[in-house]
């Protein structure tokens, strides 16, 4: 009988601890929502799931409290041999060392969040994940169904590629643009860029597209007619991808882009990137991308500073790839965004 009652009380303790944790999680989610910290953790389209979790945790937690306080009548008890496994784990749990480490593990999220409060991913993480400057690569590679090994214009050490990615005409356009960008750097930037812009406006751009890139071509046509192309919060990824896909046509256009400053050792002097993290579900899958920029202002940028840069788009070489380069002539600090991340636009292309 003694053994019976002690096992009962240990089971009660377990139930109360379980209730404590479940209610703790539900409180934590409520706190996160109240403090508007949710964007730091999950994408908006997953928020309702997390809020639902708070509710379920609360109900389940209250149920555990109820069961701990009002024990089942012995003859009604939920005894079945299906619980043997749980019983064994509970025995292990009762073992002081293992139960201690298990309890600490379960409390870890609460303790750590208290010691180190959450913050948005910064350029430190961006360096690990690798900022993408040419997101359209994923579109270009396989459009013509060409072979297994994608390379960027023969720049990567892979040797088994079958076809060049860029058309010859395009590559001459690139060289031209690069020349222009070089002259821009040495000469008077504003004058050169206005000439360039004029030239770009008179040339009728053709946005070549296939069935997969048609939506980007449509967006490109919309963007092209604008005086200044603003990379918006809602279509951040889509606009950058479009600009990158048609960077030859967009060379010379004025672009305005907000984001955080990212710098690394691979960059040439004076260059930095204006970048954002794009998130699918949670911070684990957040990946940074942005536009490589060259600072032509007096403003000294430092990493993780939030800025809005405006300038003329050119093409330049970065780590053996042809990427967009924004010659920033207007740069201003902006307050850090309430929601530091950008998300794929679900309405895009529909």
């Amino acid at each position: 009988m003694n053994a019976n009652s002690s096992s009962l009380s240990s089971e009660r303790k377990m139930k109360l601890f379980c209730a404590f944790l479940l209610l703790g999680w539900s409180m934590m989610i409520v706190y996160i929502t109240k403090q508007q910290l949710m964007p730091l953790y999950v994408a908006p389209r997953m928020e309702w799931l997390v809020k639902g979790t708070a509710l379920v945790c609360y109900i389940l937690g209250m149920f555990q409290v109820y069961m701990a306080v009002v024990p089942a009548k012995p003859n009604h008890s939920s005894a079945c041999n299906c619980t043997t496994m749980e019983t064994k784990h509970k025995r292990g749990f009762a073992n002081s060392l293992s139960s201690c480490s298990a309890a600490i593990t379960l409390l870890l999220p609460f303790i750590l969040s208290y010691i180190w409060p959450p913050m948005p991913l910064s350029s430190q993480t961006a360096a690990l994940k690798g900022v993408q400057y040419a997101p359209s690569a994923s579109l270009k590679q396989w459009t013509s169904g060409q072979s297994s090994s994608p390379t960027d214009a023969g720049s990567s050490p892979k040797s088994d590629s079958t076809g060049p990615v860029y058309e010859p005409s395009n590559s001459s356009a690139q060289q031209e643009a690069e020349k222009e960008s070089r002259s821009n750097k040495s000469g008077q930037p504003s004058q050169a860029s206005s000439e360039q812009q004029f030239a770009a406006n008179t040339r009728a751009p053709i946005f070549e597209a296939d069935e997969f890139t048609q939506i980007y071509a449509d967006l490109a046509k919309q963007l092209y007619n604008k005086e200044v192309i603003v990379v918006t919060e809602k279509q951040y990824m889509e606009i950058i991808l479009t600009l990158d896909l048609y960077k030859e046509q967009f060379a010379g256009k004025r672009i305005r882009i907000p984001g955080f400053v990212y710098q690394d050792k691979e960059m040439e002097k004076g260059r930095f990137a204006i970048a954002r993290f794009s998130m699918q579900c949670c911070t684990a899958d957040a990946s940074p991308f942005g536009i490589l920029s060259v600072n032509q202002t007096k403003h000294n940028v430092k990493a993780d500073e939030w800025v809005e840069g405006e300038g003329v788009l050119t093409i330049a070489k970065h780590e053996n790839n042809q990427v967009m380069l924004l010659e920033v002539d207007t740069l201003r600090s902006i307050p850090a965004k309430e929601d530091p991340y950008v998300y794929p636009d679900l309405d895009f292309g529909s």
Binding site: L40, Y41, V42, L108, P109, L112, S113, I115, W116, P117, P118, M119, P120, L121, S122, Q124, T125, C282, T283, A284
Partner: peptide
């Protein structure tokens, strides 16, 4: 701090 954010996330 980034670690706890990713962990809790």
């Amino acid at each position: 701090r980034t670690f706890t954010t990713v962990f809790v996330s």
